[in-house]
Deep mutational scan, measured.
Amino acid sequence: MSIQHFRVALIPFFAAFCLPVFAHPETLVKVKDAEDQLGARVGYIELDLNSGKILESFRPEERFPMMSTFKVLLCGAVLSRVDAGQEQLGRRIHYSQNDLVEYSPVTEKHLTDGMTVRELCSAAITMSDNTAANLLLTTIGGPKELTAFLHNMGDHVTRLDRWEPELNEAIPNDERDTTMPAAMATTLRKLLTGELLTLASRQQLIDWMEADKVAGPLLRSALPAGWFIADKSGAGERGSRGIIAALGPDGKPSRIVVIYTTGSQATMDERNRQIAEIGASLIKHW
């Protein structure tokens, strides 16, 4: 067993022997301040990774656009098919120029040779490549099948209805392509620590998230040296922004954090800054 596999296998073990965790309302004060600064709703939840206990939450059962955070769930569904012998990570998928959609920095470079399922998941999570996500959605049967996968996990809230990039439209009061912070946090925890996926697939999923290259201005910008984070960000229309993450000190994750916002007129930089400040408060009061 590799060191990384050992780390993920012992996530519940280490967490069980940690000192009790206590909620700190100071972080919620910052979440509410972010709402004021952005002029928009902000949803927040913080779960203990081992027990699933909610440590703090704000608007945990209000719907927010998922945006690209759905790509972690998508690759979880792909990995479940791999575990069941219905898919192979090494299978190569070929596609054409007509398949390319807006923001496809990886797939646009491989029109000639195609990409493997493993490479597509890596591109979808680490670079948020939209064509990679659409190609992977095709392998599982489309958005409705991802929703069905989530329902089978016990998540009857999260739903995907459309493809990239239309799913980022974020129309107010439109339930399409949305989740709730509580539902997303619980589902992410199941994917990373539950028995739904094999140990190898859980490790692969967290490795992809740990290698995320496009979430630097968010929670990662607030992390002290030595902290662990595996995350996936999302951005959408109407001032929408979000991030889902597993993080913790001492090089291992111990909490799940989900943050979503929508309806702001603020710039992307300002949305990023507010999420980073929430992260800084979380870490300060850990």
Rank of each mutant, 00 (worst) to 15 (best):
E26N: 09
L28V: 07
L28R: 07
V29L: 12
V29D: 05
V31L: 06
K32C: 14
A34G: 05
D36M: 07
L38E: 13
L38D: 05
L38I: 04
L38Q: 13
L38G: 13
E46G: 12
N50M: 15
S51P: 08
K53Y: 12
L55D: 11
L55W: 14
F58I: 07
F58P: 00
F58S: 10
R59W: 13
P60S: 13
P60Y: 05
E61L: 04
R63W: 05
F64S: 01
P65R: 05
M66T: 10
S68V: 00
S68E: 00
S68A: 00
T69L: 12
T69A: 11
F70D: 01
F70T: 08
K71R: 00
L73I: 03
C75Y: 00
G76R: 00
A77T: 13
A77W: 12
V78R: 01
S80T: 08
S80N: 15
R81I: 06
R81C: 07
R81K: 03
D83W: 05
D83P: 05
D83N: 06
A84L: 07
A84T: 09
Q86H: 10
E87W: 04
E87I: 03
E87H: 08
Q88A: 10
Q88N: 15
L89Y: 13
L89I: 13
G90I: 05
R92E: 10
I93L: 15
I93G: 13
Y95A: 07
Q97T: 06
N98L: 12
N98C: 09
N98P: 10
D99L: 05
D99I: 02
V101G: 02
V101M: 07
Y103V: 06
Y103P: 04
V106C: 15
T107D: 01
L111I: 04
L111G: 08
D113V: 02
T116C: 15
T116G: 13
R118D: 12
R118W: 13
R118M: 05
A123P: 00
T126S: 06
T126W: 11
S128I: 00
D129S: 01
N130T: 13
L135F: 05
L137K: 02
T138D: 05
T139Q: 09
I140N: 05
K144C: 03
L146G: 09
L146M: 04
A148M: 02
F149W: 04
F149D: 09
F149Y: 07
L150C: 10
H151F: 04
N152Y: 07
G154P: 06
D155W: 01
H156K: 10
H156E: 10
H156M: 13
V157R: 11
L160A: 12
L160E: 09
E164W: 00
P165I: 02
L167V: 09
E169H: 05
A170W: 02
I171C: 15
P172R: 06
D174W: 08
D174Y: 08
E175W: 11
R176C: 15
D177T: 01
T178F: 14
T178W: 01
T179Y: 00
P181D: 00
P181H: 01
A182W: 02
A182R: 07
A183I: 12
M184T: 03
T187L: 15
L188Y: 07
R189E: 06
G194N: 12
L199R: 07
S201F: 13
S201R: 09
R202A: 08
R202E: 12
Q203G: 03
L205T: 13
D207C: 03
W208P: 01
W208L: 13
D212P: 11
V214G: 08
A215S: 15
G216R: 08
P217E: 14
L218I: 02
L218F: 04
L218P: 06
R220Y: 10
R220H: 13
R220K: 14
A222W: 02
L223C: 02
P224E: 10
G226R: 08
I229T: 10
A230Y: 12
G234H: 00
G236A: 08
G239K: 03
S240R: 09
R241D: 14
G242H: 13
I243S: 14
A245Q: 01
A245R: 00
A246Q: 11
L247W: 04
L247D: 00
G248Q: 03
G248M: 02
G251E: 15
G251I: 14
K252P: 10
P253Y: 03
S254M: 04
R255F: 15
T261A: 11
Q265T: 06
A266L: 03
A266H: 08
T267K: 04
T267I: 03
E270I: 01
R271T: 12
I275F: 15
A276R: 11
A276F: 14
A276W: 06
A280W: 15
S281G: 08
S281K: 14
L282T: 04
I283C: 04
K284L: 09
H285C: 10
W286K: 02
